[in-house]
């Protein structure tokens, strides 16, 4: 490792043990936010320090790491975090979802289905799903203890009353294993169904707020809704301009001064895989 002043994967071993213990409790109580002694990381709070701490505590030389931000491997923050781990953890990196053993993500779940044995690490800004409805930790902790989630139901119902639909589009609250209400992090609600009964382990790290939570593999994750207003995801009339996908989450891009739009897959790996399948490489 080039930076001899720091331990393997940056964190000292005592800190890793503390985070590892928190992760095990998080897995044992799915969706419950475990407080942990979050440390300063060499990247700023709000830029993925929770995810980075979780990744640093689990990663090893046998791993292959993929890092995405907004679904893409080549966005600046994804590049920065991938370089950080290549530097401090001497770990192989990849952009291919199916090759990765650990995937750290901000704001997306890959389109390619995950497998048993993979770990998806989410970067979480505000872990408390009720925070914008109740700013006090002392209050929200009690609400979780009592499974008292009426305040969220009321909020969603008000949205229906005002807009005719639930207008919440990302960070859409879910109920895990029928017990804990959980923030899925600011993924678009398009990705919520992928969290349910997923064969991969999902770990969520909130660095500034010092919370870790988890969804074990094959665990029920239900997006909140009402019988007369069932949960639904975003749809596009367009398809991806690069790979023709009609199933993936599309980013909208403004391509000229006249405001002309183009839609492409947010998940760059998925898009490239499809492009290669459709147009075999010329030799």
């Amino acid at each position: 490792m080039p930076d001899g002043a720091y331990n393997y994967a940056y964190l000292d071993e005592q800190t890793k043990r503390m985070i590892r213990r928190a992760i095990l409790k998080a897995v044992a109580v799915p969706g419950y936010q475990v407080p942990f002694g979050g440390r300063e990381m060499p990247l700023p709070y709000g830029w993925g320090t929770g995810g980075i701490q979780v990744t640093a505590a689990i990663i090893g030389q046998d791993d292959t790491l993929k890092v995405i931000d907004q679904g893409a491997d080549d966005t600046t923050n994804a590049v920065s975090i991938r370089r950080f781990f290549a530097r401090v953890a001497d770990v192989a990196t990849t952009t291919r979802t199916e090759e990765a053993t650990v995937i750290q993500t901000r704001h997306r779940v890959p389109e390619t289905p995950l497998k048993d044995g993979q770990i998806l690490v989410f970067q979480v800004p505000i872990p408390e799903p009720l925070r914008m409805l109740e700013p006090r930790e002392t209050e929200t902790r009690t609400l979780h203890a009592l499974t008292e989630y009426g305040v969220m139901q009321v909020s969603l119902y008000e949205s229906i009353a005002r807009h005719g639909r639930i207008a919440k589009t990302y960070n859409y609250p879910v109920l895990v294993n029928g017990r804990y209400m959980m923030s899925p992090s600011p993924i678009p609600k398009f990705d919520n169904p992928k969290l349910d009964n997923n064969p991969a382990l999902q770990l969520y790290g909130a660095g500034r707020e010092k919370r870790i939570y988890a969804v074990p593999p094959y665990t029920s994750v239900k997006s909140l809704d009402f019988e007369d207003h069932p949960f639904e995801i975003e749809t596009w009339t367009e398809c991806c301009a690069l790979c023709d996908s009609k199933e993936s989450f599309l980013d909208e891009m403004i391509v000229d001064d006249a405001g002309k739009r183009m839609f492409v897959c947010s998940d760059t790996d998925y898009c490239q895989e499809r492009q290669q399948q459709h147009r075999p490489e010329k030799t």
Binding site: N7, R20, V27, A28, A57, I58, I59, G60, G117, L201
Partner: peptide, 19 residues
């Protein structure tokens, strides 16, 4: 090698808790 051995053992334990 306490750093790498404990990492590998932890992953086995995490795997066990997850499954």
């Amino acid at each position: 090698d306490s750093s790498h051995d404990s990492q590998r053992v932890f992953r086995a334990v995490l795997d066990a808790f997850s499954h």
